[in-house]
Design a protein around this nucleic acid. Sequence first.
DNA 1: CCTACGTCGATTGTCGACATTCGACAGACG
DNA 2: CGTCTGTCGAATGTCGACAATCGACGTAGG
Lengths: 230, 230
Amino acid sequence: MKNRKTALQHIENPPLRERVLDVLREAIINGDLKPGDALRETELSESLGVSRAPLREALQILSTEGLVETVPYHGTTVRVLTKTDIEELYSLRSVLETFAVRQIIARNPPDHVQVLYGCFHEMLAAAENNDLKSVNQIDRNFHTTLIELSGHSLLQTSWNVVSMRVRQVMALLNRRNSNLTQIAYNHLPIIQAIEATHEQEAVRLIEKHVAASGELIVERWQVMDGANGT
Amino acid sequence: MKNRKTALQHIENPPLRERVLDVLREAIINGDLKPGDALRETELSESLGVSRAPLREALQILSTEGLVETVPYHGTTVRVLTKTDIEELYSLRSVLETFAVRQIIARNPPDHVQVLYGCFHEMLAAAENNDLKSVNQIDRNFHTTLIELSGHSLLQTSWNVVSMRVRQVMALLNRRNSNLTQIAYNHLPIIQAIEATHEQEAVRLIEKHVAASGELIVERWQVMDGANGT
DNA sequence: CCTACGTCGATTGTCGACATTCGACAGACG
DNA sequence: CGTCTGTCGAATGTCGACAATCGACGTAGG
């Protein structure tokens, strides 16, 4: 029985709370649950077919992740995003990704750039097929990979929170009619700068990349938010 | 009844889970609960005099905060800190504080430096009284104030996690026999650089300040960890 | 008609009991 | 004697029911 070659897939048995958590997170991130929506415990637990206990635990986690807002004795709602929230989101994202890039260059590990090039080529292929959904997914994957390659687990934890909120924002305003191939090629110089271990250049490019993305979002947000504010 | 002048204190009525959370957090941060200690639900709920439901919710939150580690069906333990954890902790802390300082200088709001000077003078007074406990508390307060003054609520959220772990580490190796007055004066140039809006200088000083603090901790950690590792 | 109070309903908070999981020990088998 | 298997116990996971809380509505009083 020892050292069996055929690596059988490990069977997971996650507690209910994990399943519930994933379902709710996806729903929020995909925009099925929109900001401001009330998450009533009784209602949700019935429609999910679980009791309130694991549901509440899932909501707790979502709350600390910042995807929902819980007011004691008053319930839980999907977090409403303001313009300030988005600005903060992208500015912190820039800080974290910048740090990741610096770490990658400092550790300069072997064949890590290859993984990034792999992402790039995938993205390019998807872009040429005009496959918006895939491009978005690979784009996320690229940035998450950047964080992972830093080898900094605490950074990764912080990133998860930021990353999920970015996904939520993106889902609420899916970038249509953009030049996908252009988006893909935007990532190339970043990879090259990392490969060449040009820290300053890489940092500059990442900051520009994230800032551009953020400004695009904030711009569209203004339109969506409509006529509130001065 | 309207516009009553005497500002009566608002009476809080936090759910049990909040109380439990605070108690456990304090216990971990203060070192009453040491890394590796098992947090058995039945045991804890009885000694705290609450049922397992609010206790579990508190543990969930501590888990996402990274203070404890929960393995499904196996229980919760106080997170064990490795040397790598501490290095990561202080490197991320440096990134976040640096960002905060840049934000403060960029927004350059009125009389914010005064608050920092206030912290400094308090710390100096405590240091001259050789009051280690107060110095530590004011030191924490100084850095938290720095984050708050950035006006970046998302940064504040991320900071909380880092901050609590730093407290935990500090409690496990309380810095004895240090020159308290020296510690206090270390903060002065940072405030001055912020006041003069010298961004580069301020960033440099903060990085140095945090790095020095981190190295001191890691050094002592080596000793405590004893004879494990090569 | 307006204000202030009391009541109601809906929702969250808390509890104790039961079900499930998993490691560890002990015993049977080769 | 070593290995495998079955059982047991202690812990977590889940559930349904009850209690506490708070806003909103309706009503009595001025």
